[in-house]
Design a protein around this nucleic acid. Structure first.
Length: 172
DNA sequence: CCCTGATTCGC
DNA sequence: GCGAATCAGG
């Protein structure tokens, strides 16, 4: 993909609007997040509020050779994540809506579907893709929870989506 | 682990 | 100039 004027302009705009590099990359299409960041730097339009400080790094002089690469992979495949929906503090950058930060009492059994209200572009492999609201509406979002790699939804929504036929009939 | 931006450097 | 790899931080 080339950086024609249109794309560069869009990049500038989105970057100015505070979108993250990955989100911009998603909208531009055909480029990676790194490409966007690289371009942003080349355009000299880095700083934007206060993302991550630039601690004058200088440690990157030939990292190759010399050191024998000893791969040590200590994989910890622990699935100790219960069905409890993590009240993970979302670090949303845009404050479009007055999200009430109420704590939910860890009720036993029932899992409350706390939606993270993610935008389509910020869904990843491990985010619940259960849609919230009207897709045509402004405040449409996705659940965003999830952790299981067994499906597209979080535990709660999986139960709703993959309801047994019998139960479904009963609910109907 | 997920994510963010920052920097370096081979192409 | 480009962007993957890497680094550093949340």
């Amino acid at each position: 993909m080339n950086w024609n004027d249109e794309r560069v302009e869009l990049l500038r705009k989105l970057w100015a609007e505070g979108l993250s590099a990955s989100q911009i990359a998603a909208q531009l299409g055909g480029v990676s997040r790194n490409a966007v960041i690289g371009k942003v730097h080349r355009l000299k339009l880095s700083s934007r509020g206060r993302a991550t400080a630039a601690p004058t790094r200088q440690k990157k002089t030939s990292q190759a050779s010399t050191a024998t690469k000893s791969v040590t992979r200590s994989s910890t495949s622990v699935r100790s994540m219960p069905v409890s929906v993590g009240a993970t503090a979302l670090q949303q950058q845009f404050d479009a809506e007055p999200v009430a930060r109420h704590y939910i009492r860890p009720v036993e059994n029932v899992v409350v579907p706390i939606s993270r209200r993610l935008q389509l572009v910020q869904l990843s492999e491990r985010t619940c893709k259960w849609p919230n609201g009207d897709p045509l509406s402004e405040d449409f979002s996705f659940c965003g929870n999830e952790s299981a790699e067994t499906g597209p939804y979080c535990g709660y929504h999986s139960k709703i989506a993959f309801q047994p036929a019998s139960e479904r009939r009963r609910n109907r």
